[in-house]
């Protein structure tokens, strides 16, 4: 279980997260939705142990990381058992896309795991551009590579921040279908997205965040029958926009 307990986070005096608690079980898909600027990415970064919360703790299986962290940073960080793919992707510009995927796995496992790579290349339709450099690939292609890099590391928990934002409908469908399959591999997925359709059909847990707090949580049915005014309002805005 990946768990955040009463996380608080602030930039200077501006509170971003206020007593946020979430649980992400292995094999479950947790979808986080909410308006822009409500703290979704900050929560993801705190869960990934990349931001130090002001208070609260993050527990990754048995390991507990409580704020404040020790001076030299956290000890024995759980990466890549817990890993993340960010909206900005962060592919290394001096390596080809193939090298971006293989370098970490080669360093960690001392094997390039070609079979797994080939399967991912096929699943994400990456044959045509895998030898290019990041700046020679489209944003959608890079999104697939960033996800493939994370999956090659065989994480137990995968945190994804808007990773389908630049993909076309066909690619979104492929990637979401792949994510669904990851449930069978007991990978816990935490996904920030605006794809409410995916959340409705696939999510085991939906969290709605606004103003730094989890306003409503539940199964996918909260998207059909919201219990709070704020979520109803958010859903109607999205429905109107689409």
């Amino acid at each position: 279980m990946l768990e955040a307990k009463t996380l608080s986070f602030a930039y200077a005096d501006r509170p971003i997260l206020k007593d946020v608690s979430v649980q992400i079980a292995q094999g479950d898909i947790t979808v986080l939705i909410g308006p822009s600027g409500c703290g979704k990415t900050t929560l993801l970064r705190c869960l990934a142990l990349l931001e130090q919360p002001k208070a609260g703790c993050v527990q990754v299986d048995e390991a507990v990381f409580s704020a404040p962290w020790p001076k030299g940073g956290i000890e024995n960080p759980p990466w890549p058992r817990l890993t993340a793919v960010f909206q900005q992707l962060f592919l290394w510009p001096h390596l080809t896309l193939r090298e971006n995927i293989l370098m970490p796995v080669l360093r960690l496992h001392k094997t390039d795991n070609e079979d797994q790579l080939d399967a991912l290349i096929e699943a994400f339709d990456m044959q045509a551009f895998i030898t290019r450099y990041p700046n020679e690939a489209s944003l959608g292609q890079r999104q697939r590579v960033a996800l493939a890099r994370a999956l090659m590391l065989q994480p137990r928990y995968l945190l994804l921040d808007e990773i389908t934002s630049a993909l076309d409908v066909e690619q979104i469908a492929k990637i979401l279908a792949y994510l669904k399959n990851l449930r069978g591999k007991q990978i816990g997925i935490f996904l920030i997205t605006h794809l409410l359709g995916f959340a409705r059909h696939t999510a085991d847990q939906v969290l709605f965040m606004a103003d730094g707090t989890i306003v409503e949580r539940g199964g996918a049915d909260i998207l059909r029958n919201p219990q709070t005014e704020r979520l109803s309002q958010f859903l109607s805005v999205i429905a109107a926009a689409s």
Binding site: A48, L50, P77, W79, P80, R81, L82, T83, A84, F86, Q88, F90, L91, W92, P93, P104, R107, L108, R149, A150, L153
Partner: peptide, 13 residues
């Protein structure tokens, strides 16, 4: 810094 963060979450030493 994002390149270093990517390395960290990939578990690199």
């Amino acid at each position: 810094q994002q390149y270093l963060i990517a390395g960290r979450v990939c578990g690199l030493q």
